[in-house]
Structures are given as structure tokens and as C-alpha cells.
């Protein structure tokens, strides 16, 4: 039964709502509006700001460091999402098959990287990838493939791939968890009847499961992409954007522009452009997943 809003109810409601609304407005709405204003100014943070119209935007499009940082961010975002999502799907498919209790233990382990902070993961892998004492180079040596040893994070050819692979390692568990959660709601009869028609598990997975779990697939793809495209912590800890500026992602470049070079106006412009590019990419991703949907 719907309750009719009385005047007392409304006052009570506003009182309850006010603290949360104030906190959200103060920490998100005001900064984002202020960012919008600063993006059209030249400002070092101390002296008076001057309006310069679209100059910052024009500069950004001819700024090699900005273009390169966009490429680095999107490279990491795309490659690691392309790694994390299929891997997560594969893991969900396999865990579904191995049985209930055994599977739940595997799920817990595979989900652990998702909740470890990226900064700690960065530190962990700095250690594992250390050229002299690191696990990877030692492993290659042991396998007699010493020729493949690299200073993985100091080499301009490998650094972005290594970061993207670590990103995939970190996020695969999320897809696994979400896809598995929607797999267990698929009625068992669907599997049994296709079994009788002679379909093996890989066939069943592709024709029955994948279409049915598409919503979770979409959610985990978009979520993984959002986390990975704006990589800051991982890169900051592992390379500080180096070697040179090879692994400098947009957030790293923005922070440098604002807090090292005191160019606040330009940094705001970069943030605005990066946000717009990200929103466009997410919109395209959503379109990609559109199409016929099935109901169970």
C-alpha cells in the first residue's frame, strides 16, 4: 500500500536526505563544474586566472605527450579487457563443470586479485619482474630460455604489454564471478535436452550459455574497461610513467601537468577530454552488446 506523502513526511525525508546530498554535491558536483570552468583558463594556481577560450583544447590536440598518453591509456584499457573478459568466461565455464564444493574454493581464490588494491599489485609485480631476482626471469632461466629474459618494466617494447597483462590478471576474477552467478540460474533441463541431442560441453556453452549470460558479460566488460582505461596506481608504482614517457597514462600526465608544472587550466582540459573519450568508448561498448536478448 503506497503511503501518501504528508507535509511531515516530506520534512522528515528532506532532513534524512540532506547530509548525503550535501556530501555528494560538495565532493563531486562542485569540483566537476569547477573543472569545466578552469578548462577554459590559463592558471598557475596562484596568480589570477585568465580566460583563453579554446586555446587549451587546441594545444591538447597538437600535444604529442597528450596523444601518446591517450594511446597508452586506451592500449592498457582495451588489451587488458580483451584478456580479462574471455579468460573470466573460460574460468566460469570450467568451474561450472567441476562440481559445487570444489568450484566454490576455486572461485574464492580466483577472486582474490580483484580486491587487492592496484598499488599493492603494482608493488608485487615490481618484485616478481625485477630483472635480477624476479620470478619471471628466474623461471625463464630454469626453463633454459634465458635468451628471453628482459628488464620487463624498463624496456619500451614490453612495458605496456606487461602492464596490460597484469591488468587482465587482476580483473579476470570479476568476469568469472558475474558470469558464474548468472550461469547457475540457467535451468538444468536446457543442458540435459541438448545432451540427448549429442552436444558436448563446449558446444552447449557456446550455443546455450553465452547468449543467456550476455547481460553479465556486458556489465563485466564495461566495468573492467572503466577500471583499466584510467590506470593510475599500477603505472605510478611500477614505472612512474617510464621508461621516458612510454607508459605515461592520461591520469599520470594530468597530475604532472597540474602539480609539477602548475598548469592547472591545461590539466583540467586534459581531464575533460579524457572523460569525454571514456564516455564515448563506454557508449560504443554498450552498442556492441546490443542486439537480441533472450529471456530464461
Amino acid at each position: 500500500m503506497a503511503q501518501h506523502p504528508t507535509r511531515r513526511n516530506i520534512i522528515f525525508g528532506i532532513l534524512l536526505l540532506a547530509p548525503a546530498a550535501a556530501a555528494i554535491i560538495a565532493t563531486t558536483l562542485l569540483p566537476v563544474l569547477s573543472n569545466l570552468v578552469i578548462a577554459f583558463q590559463e592558471w598557475n594556481g596562484f596568480s589570477a586566472a585568465t580566460w583563453i577560450g579554446f586555446d587549451n583544447f587546441r594545444n591538447a590536440f597538437s600535444d604529442k605527450y597528450f596523444i601518446d598518453s591517450m594511446k597508452a591509456s586506451f592500449f592498457i584499457g582495451i588489451v587488458s579487457t580483451l584478456g580479462a573478459v574471455p579468460l573470466g568466461v573460460l574460468l566460469a565455464a570450467c568451474i561450472f563443470k567441476v562440481g559445487k564444493y570444489e568450484g566454490s574454493a576455486y572461485r574464492v581464490v580466483l577472486f582474490v586479485p580483484v580486491m587487492i588494491p592496484l598499488a599493492i599489485i603494482g608493488l608485487l609485480f615490481t618484485f616478481l619482474l625485477n630483472p635480477e631476482m624476479g620470478l619471471l626471469n628466474k623461471l625463464l632461466e630454469m626453463l633454459g630460455m634465458g635468451g628471453l629474459q628482459r628488464a620487463w618494466l624498463a624496456n619500451p617494447d614490453t612495458v605496456l604489454w606487461v602492464i596490460a597483462i597484469i591488468g587482465a590478471w587482476r580483473m579476470a576474477g570479476l568476469t568469472m564471478m558475474l558470469v558464474f552467478a548468472s550461469m547457475i540460474s540457467i535451468p538444468g533441463e536446457l543442458f540435459e535436452s541438448s545432451r540427448l541431442d549429442g552436444a558436448g560441453y563446449p558446444r552447449q556453452f557456446v550455443s546455450i550459455v553465452l547468449p543467456l549470460v550476455r547481460p553479465s558479460l556486458q556489465v563485466s566488460t564495461v566495468f573492467s574497461f572503466i577500471v583499466l582505461v584510467s590506470t593510475y596506481d599500477l603505472v605510478y608504482i611500477m614505472t612512474r610513467g617510464g621508461p621516458g614517457t612510454v607508459s605515461q597514462t592520461v591520469p599520470i600526465y594530468m597530475m604532472k601537468t597540474a602539480f609539477t608544472y602548475s598548469n592547472f587550466g591545461y590539466s583540467a582540459t586534459l581531464g575533460l577530454l579524457f572523460s569525454l573519450a571514456g564516455i564515448l568508448a563506454i557508449f560504443l561498448l554498450q552498442r556492441l552488446f546490443k542486439g537480441e536478448t533472450y529471456e530464461v
Binding site: Q3, H4, N9, I10, I24, L29, M255
Partner: peptide
């Protein structure tokens, strides 16, 4: 509490969640 505009307020909150942190920090 059946407040007027409850849905719109929630939508506003969630839209605020969509703003990338990079453009808030500075």
C-alpha cells in the same frame, strides 16, 4: 517515504558516480 522526485534524485546521485575521478581531483 514517497518523496516527490525520489527517482530523479537517485538518478542524479548515480550520474555523479559516473564522473571520472581524474577530473575531480585537481
Amino acid at each position: 517515504l514517497n518523496l516527490p522526485y525520489a527517482e530523479a534524485i537517485l538518478l542524479f546521485f548515480l550520474a555523479m558516480k559516473m564522473v571520472p575521478h581524474e577530473s575531480l581531483v585537481m
